[in-house]
Design a protein around this nucleic acid. Structure first.
Lengths: 150, 150
DNA sequence: TACCAATCGTGAATCGTTTGCAGTAGCCAT
DNA sequence: ATGGCTACTGCAAACGATTCACGATTGGTA
C-alpha cells in the first residue's frame, strides 16, 4: 500500500524534451503514447485516464498502461483531489501542490516554494518531511468561507 | 466528487454515548450496527470495512451501509492513508489527523491542536481553512529520513 | 402484540484499475 | 530498405472497493 515511488525528478517544458527524457529511459514513442503525452501538454491541468482515452479514442487500458510507464519513469505523476479517479499531470510542468476546497470542489495550484514555510514548520515540529503532491491540502477555500459561514 | 459532508461534530468517548448520539438522529440500533460500533471502539485505530465484516461475520454490504449511515450522521468518518480501502474511525475519538510516511507506510496520529499552527499559517497565506482529517500529510517520517537519506 | 419503516442478507451492478494474451509496430542492425 | 526483436497495442476478462435493487426481517413504538 505504498504510494507512487519518487522517481528521479525530470524537468522539461516542451513535448520534445519530454520525448527526449522518455528515450533516455529506453521507452518507445508509440502512437498512443505520443497522443497521451500531447494531451497532457495540451490539458495544462491534471486530467483523468478516461478523459485522455475518450478524447483520443485510445483504449483506456492502453492509456493506463502508458501513464503507469511514464509515471514509473518520472515523466508523469498523479494526484487525488477528493474522491473519483486519479488525475495525471506532467512532472515537467512543476511539482505543483494543491489546495482543494471540499465545499465547491475547486483546486488551487501552488508552486512548491509557496508551501516551503509550511513544510518547514511541520519538519520542525514533527520531523516529518511533507509533500502535498499526491494528496492535496483539503479544506474550505476563502470564497466558500465567506459564502457559507464555517 | 465532493468529499464527505461535514456533519455537526459530536463528541463521545463511550459506546453508550455513541448509541445515544445515534438515537438522537433517529437511527435504530440493529445487531449489525451495534457490532460494527463495538468493533470501532475496540479497534482504537482506523480500520477498513472489510476488516469489520470479516471479524464480525457481517455482510460487507451491510458494513458499508452502516458506516455510510453513521458517517452521514457524524458518528463515524473515514481517512485515506496511501492507496487501498478507506479506513473508518469514530468521530468521538477525536478529530485526529495523520502524518503518513510513504516510505514505510506508518501513520502518526496527531491531536488537532498540534496542527493548529500549521493551519494558521496556511490560512494566513492562502485564506484556506485546512483539515488533514480526510487525507493525511504525506511525506517521509523522521526515521526513514535517517535510514534512507532523502 | 401488532404494525411499519429502518435495516438486513443475497446477488448483481458499478467504478477505477490491472492483467493475460495474441497480434502489431517501433526501433535497431544489418 | 528489410528483417528481427520486443515494447507496445487492442480486446477481453479479472480485480478490489463500493453501491444498488430486492424481497425478507426486525427494532422501536403505539
Amino acid at each position: 500500500m505504498t504510494l507512487a515511488p519518487q522517481a528521479n525528478r525530470l524537468a522539461f517544458r516542451s513535448f520534445d524534451e519530454a520525448v527526449a527524457a522518455l528515450r533516455e529511459r529506453g521507452m518507445r514513442l508509440s502512437t498512443a503514447r505520443r497522443l497521451a503525452l500531447e494531451a497532457l501538454f495540451a490539458a495544462e491541468r491534471p486530467v483523468s485516464a478516461e478523459w485522455i482515452a475518450e478524447r483520443l479514442k485510445i483504449e483506456l487500458t492502453s492509456v493506463y498502461r502508458n501513464l503507469e510507464a511514464l509515471e514509473r519513469n518520472g515523466i508523469v505523476r498523479h494526484v487525488h483531489l477528493g474522491h473519483g479517479p486519479g488525475l495525471y499531470l506532467l512532472v515537467g510542468e512543476g511539482e505543483r501542490e494543491y489546495l482543494y476546497c471540499e465545499r465547491c470542489g475547486s483546486a488551487q495550484a501552488l508552486e512548491p516554494e509557496q508551501l516551503d514555510p509550511v513544510r518547514e514548520q511541520i519538519r520542525e515540529r514533527f520531523g516529518h518531511r511533507a509533500r502535498f503532491t499526491h494528496f492535496p491540502i483539503v479544506g474550505t477555500c476563502a470564497a466558500c468561507q465567506v459564502a457559507g459561514g464555517a
